[in-house]
Amino acid sequence: MSYAYLFKYIIIGDTGVGKSCLLLQFTDKRFQPVHDLTIGVEFGARMITIDGKQIKLQIWDTAGQESFRSITRSYYRGAAGALLVYDITRRDTFNHLTTWLEDARQHSNSNMVIMLIGNKSDLEARRDVKKEEGEAFAREHGLIFMETSAKTAANVEEAFINTAKEIYQKIQDGVFDINNEANGIKIGPQHSPSNPNMPSPAGGGSQGGGCC
């Protein structure tokens, strides 16, 4: 149960692009074909290993519907990583990416790692957005890009893990202030100061950063 770091993720994107399915595939390794509308926000968690370190991912899967947009905005600030998802078989979901990105950039901390995901890659026959377009968009806006299939699990692990790797790298580079929990990063219990009554985490933070 112990971990070196805890990263908070959010998953955003239009309704029906497969956000909840991606989460379910990642946490439970299963696929649910029936679209069950997410109300507000749902939570999921999983442990991964990067560079020999246990990292806990806490993932908030947000509702894609416009009516929930104001609620889901509240989750941007506290997240270290975001998966911005579109559906490769529906161009409109790709066209909305700009809006999503503006929203995310406006409400999140500037260091948030955003992974662009073109989901439903298993439906090649119905493809509406070329892979090159996704790549171009990601290049233009400085995002990481990947095409996934929540149904076949293709690239799902990679999407979550690569995002974590990017965050981990940013920590190594000192970009993230790991002592500010509003960044969506927490140092694990074994890295935090041994004295639980000491309220200031500053000492523990540098200690944790030092040993990593």
């Binding site: 908070k8 507000g40 926000v41 939570f43 908030w60 609620i71 509240s74 989750y75 506290g78 929990e181 639980p196 009554n197 309220p199």
Partner: peptide, 23 residues
């Protein structure tokens, strides 16, 4: 209000509250 409960929890409420109780 479930939505507010979730957001508050997202903002690390559990951790902070449990810390206060312990302290």
């Amino acid at each position: 209000n479930t939505n507010l409960q979730k957001i508050v929890a997202f903002e690390n409420a559990f951790e902070r509250l449990l810390d206060i109780v312990r302290d």
